[in-house]
Design a protein around this nucleic acid. Structure first.
Length: 411
DNA sequence: CTTCCACGGGAACACTGGGGTG
DNA sequence: CACCCCAGTGTTCCCGTGGAAG
């Protein structure tokens, strides 16, 4: 086949997408359905900034995909716009604490917005703090700091939050207020009471979307994303229903819609059908797991591989550790302590790759009961892609001494 | 009531990649 | 240049603790 013909064929297929970008999580729409209440609430608090007062700090709660970030960014953008018109200096800074997750780096980013030259590492933290403080205090202005996923920050100490929440008393010209976004309702319990009261002056809750609301969101975006008539009428309700089961996650719903359409496109279908959605549902989950497993640190991979080899439900830490030690020797890796391996297993649990629950087996002590919750063979092959684990390819469990545990025999 | 095993918190340490000073 | 300081990360060491079988 001639090359030109090859592309001709592909081009003759009518594209399903008009604009794929509007379905991506990074896209912030101009209209946010079913969030009027929250938007108004936030605007009423932040309007103080336009009047030249310091707005209250805000805490925003809600599960993932309930529009917290989108609303915060949207209101922030509008606020900046209004302030600009009124020549009222106001800056909204957005920081995602999952990416920028230490106090040094938060301050480094903040100071960076005010043209302060700071090395990305090396300085004492208080010096960076002072630099940031001086940076904003050069003129009279309001600075709103949006800290997305603050719970990730708090896990490493609440010092920055403490400092930021009382920074106003050290400023002569500028004013600072903080918007914290969290999907963990309990995170505030870990805070110092002083930080808690100051940060939570105002609280806004984002309830999950129900299936109908998700449908509205999807329809609105679908109008921008697709050519007319490329969606089966079943598609949007189904995406909405699936996502509603996952605690009303709009991001998930949009992902589902986008992937469904991509799959339809790839299978050269002119329209997106119900089957594509079901297919997409599986694909998203599998892709996620493959990606997580692939990017695991090597030691975690070894631990996971041990469990995959054992290939049984209700493993105990002791068993896994014995196999793990053996694998370490075979691959020439450093052997970590059991204490550390317990942590690695807990991390795998958090990622949803394994299930681990602590059980007490009476006379036979306390342990974790672990089972791998991903398809064994696929997990195995992804793990073996790592060049450091290559040599484990043909390994059999019999080469590993199976511990004699009477414990396991009766359940 | 004892006993047992591993859980999991916390301190301490090692190491990395950067800075500033003499 | 040598040297020490700093934040951050991953690890080891130490140890108190849970809780049902025995």
């Amino acid at each position: 086949m001639e090359l030109s013909q090859l592309f001709e064929d592909l081009l003759s297929i009518k594209p399903i997408f008009v604009n794929r970008e509007v379905l991506r999580p990074s896209y912030t729409p101009d209209y946010l359905p079913h969030r009027k209440e929250q938007i108004n609430r936030m605007a009423t608090i932040l309007v103080a900034a336009i009047r030249g007062e310091t707005p209250s700090n805000i805490l925003i709660y809600g599960k993932s995909g309930t529009g917290k970030t989108a609303v915060a960014k949207y209101v922030g953008r509008e606020l900046e716009r209004t302030c600009e018109v009124r020549r009222n200096p106001c800056t909204v800074l957005y920081i995602n604490c999952e990416v920028v997750d230490t106090q040094y780096r938060v301050l480094y980013h903040l100071a960076g917005h005010f043209d302060r030259e700071i090395p990305s590492t090396g300085w004492p933290t208080d010096q960076v703090y002072a630099e940031f403080k001086n940076g904003i205090d050069t003129e009279s202005r309001t600075v709103i700091i949006i800290l997305d996923e603050v719970d990730k920050l708090v896990k490493k100490g609440d010092e920055i939050l403490y400092n930021l929440s009382r920074i106003n008393s050290e400023l002569d010209n500028a004013k600072v207020s903080i918007i914290g976004i969290s999907n963990d309702l309990k995170f505030i319990e870990f805070l110092d009471p002083r930080v808690r009261s100051s940060l939570g002056e105002e609280e806004i809750i984002f309830p999950p979307y129900d299936a109908n609301q998700l449908r509205d969101i999807l329809e609105q975006r679908a109008n921008m994303a697709f050519r007319q008539g490329t969606l089966d009428p079943e598609v949007i309700p189904l995406c909405a229903a699936f996502a509603a089961q996952e605690h009303g996650d709009a991001r998930r719903a949009l992902d589902l819609l986008r992937v469904s359409a991509e799959l339809a496109e790839r299978s050269q279908s002119d329209i997106v059908k119900e089957e594509h959605v079901r297919w997409a549902q599986d694909k998203i989950e599998l892709d996620r797991i493959v990606e997580v497993v692939r990017t695991l640190p090597t030691q975690s991979k070894l631990v996971l591989y041990s469990m995959v080899l054992l290939n049984r439900k209700g493993l105990t830490t002791g068993e896994v550790y014995k196999v793990y030690k053996d694998l370490c020797h075979k691959t020439d890796m450093a052997v970590l302590t059991q204490r550390r391996v317990t942590d690695l297993i807990s991390e795998l649990d958090m990622l949803g790759i394994v299930n681990a629950i602590v059980v007490s087996k009476g006379r036979y002590g306390r342990t974790k009961e672990i089972s791998v919750s991903t398809p064994t063979e696929q997990t195995k092959s992804v793990l073996l892609e790592d060049y450091r684990l290559k040599s484990l390819g043909g390994i059999r469990l019999k080469s590993v001494s199976i511990p004699v545990t009477q414990t396991r025999l009766y359940e």
